[in-house]
């Protein structure tokens, strides 16, 4: 065998070993409990039926999609607007405000936990979708990243549009957003993934089971399964797979997106 091929096989094997906990999880999620405890193999979809049905994971899945989706869209909208202003306008206080946005990158989120809980309790938003979404929606990193990106776009494009009588919001929407789309897209994926995996805030803000996200639902299912030795592991693994899978799909999408970006850059 050529050393190249050998390398490829070695890489594949190493990758599979590294990911074996995930692969094993998916495998067990399709096994019956009896098969699992007796060491056999018996394919079934029952664990998924049980997780989605009896244990309400359809609901948690929907909650996760809704919350992460709104946080992503809202976060991107706010970040893009602010990034545009910081990149293109000089205005009194602009530098200070930008510094305040960048400084949020250094602020550890745990300091806001108790106060945000109290704020939401005061306005009656605990145990609501809004309570999950609002504290998570501002994203200083996205604003900073997009501002850097927009600064790289030639100003002449803006000016041409202004000459044609465009208003600032039209310049943003028609000129900047289309050009900055790769950057906006990758920030969107970043926000979506972080919010999807967010655990501590929903844990604090939600006690109503109907509003559980997948992360809370999975943690509860695992912890509340009675008895250390009689845990229904195939069911828990099905729930884990449900929690991981959307991000796995997203991951392959990002990979392709990245590859496309690289090859496009090479062709230009």
């Amino acid at each position: 065998m050529k050393p190249e091929t050998l390398w490829a096989w070695a890489a594949l094997v190493a990758g599979l070993i590294f990911l074996s906990p995930v692969l094993y999880t998916i495998w067990i999620s399709f096994q019956t409990v009896d098969a699992y405890y007796s060491g056999g193999a018996h394919f079934t979809l029952e664990n998924y039926a049980e997780a989605f049905g009896q244990y309400d994971f359809v609901r948690y899945l929907w909650n996760s999609i809704l919350v992460s989706g709104v946080v992503t869209l809202g976060g991107l909208a706010m970040a893009t607007m602010a990034a545009f202003a910081f990149a293109r306008f000089t205005f009194p206080g602009g530098d200070f405000l930008f510094a305040a946005v960048v400084a949020t990158l250094m602020i550890p989120s745990h300091i806001t936990l108790i106060p945000n809980y109290l704020t939401l309790a005061k306005v009656g938003l605990l145990d609501t979708y809004a309570g999950l979404i609002l504290p998570a929606i501002s994203n200083g990193f996205a604003a900073f990243f997009l501002r850097q990106y927009i600064r790289g776009i030639p100003r002449a494009l803006d000016e041409a549009a202004y000459m044609d009588g465009a208003r600032p919001y039209q310049v943003l929407w028609r000129v900047i957003v289309p050009i900055a789309r790769p950057a906006i897209l990758s920030m969107g994926l970043y926000i979506f993934i972080s919010e999807w995996n967010n655990y501590i805030w929903p844990l604090v803000a939600i006690s109503d089971q109907d509003l559980y996200t997948l992360q809370i639902g999975l943690a509860r299912l695992y912890k509340e399964n009675p008895g250390e030795d009689v845990i229904n592991w195939p069911l828990v693994m099905a729930a884990s797979t449900i929690t991981i899978l959307p991000i796995l799909f997203g991951f392959f999408l990002v990979e392709r997106h990245l590859v496309r970006g690289i090859t496009m850059g090479a062709v230009k």
């Binding site: 909208a77 706010m78 970040a79 607007m81 602010a82 545009f84 202003a85 910081f86 306008f89 602009g94 405000l97 305040a100 946005v101 609002l134 929606i137 501002s138 604003a143 600032p168 943003l172």
Partner: peptide, 8 residues
């Protein structure tokens, strides 16, 4: 343009 982000 910066108001929503700054407010949040």
């Amino acid at each position: 343009f910066v108001l929503p982000l700054i407010a949040f």
